[in-house]
Design a protein around this nucleic acid. Structure first.
Lengths: 98, 98
DNA sequence: TCCATAGTTCAAGAATAATGGAATTAAAAG
DNA sequence: CTTTTAATTCCATTATTCTTGAACTATGGA
């Protein structure tokens, strides 16, 4: 994972609404949930939610599939896990400890 | 860890300079490194770096101690670990899987 | 074909965050 | 007590991000 991807993931999650959306999708598991249900559950206007979902998708933290008239979003948890790995890489390499 | 703390940590790390500072401090380990060395190594103006260090410190991701004329910063990696735990909490609880 | 439902896109203004220069604090040395 | 080194704070400017309403696309049903 490169710096740019990490920055995109971090700034995607660094917003109240998007953090809530991501966590909601995490609880929903691989089956995901339609945009409309997310909007309702979190009380976010549909257009605003679209903006935030696009942000999460762009950062690789969520993906969407169409099912009839609905767009079903689900969380990509692997990307989130990759972030902490990047953060902790090379821990203490400048000191003979740990 | 509450939502507000997570948001502060995420937005602290969601910036190129601060992400680099944090990772540099992670490699430096518990001994940390003085602000001046960070500024030099990352080629960031002292005042700008101060701004970013304050941001990291405020988010609980770094701490500082004075040693003569220098301020030695070190990373608080536990806070970073707590973030991913928060993100992955209650995974799939809405679906009988995982 | 016409209408309703489900979401997205666009453009604007509003709110937040980042940068750079000048002044300021803190500690140690001459 | 003056100077130097180390770093921070303040303030104005600039840049970025968020929100809102209106218009638009896509799908399915009457």
């Amino acid at each position: 994972m490169d710096e740019q991807a990490v920055l995109m993931a971090l700034s995607a999650l660094a917003h109240e609404s998007r953090l809530r959306v991501f966590r909601l999708l995490v609880t929903a598991g691989p089956n995901g949930m339609p945009a409309g249900h997310i909007a309702e559950e979190l009380a976010i206007a549909p257009n605003t939610l679209s903006f935030h979902l696009a942000h999460l998708k762009n950062a690789g933290l969520a993906s969407a599939r169409r099912e009839s008239r609905s767009l079903i979003y689900s969380a990509d948890t692997g990307q989130a896990r990759a972030v902490i790995e990047y953060l902790m890489e090379n821990c203490c390499t400048r000191q003979p400890c740990c």
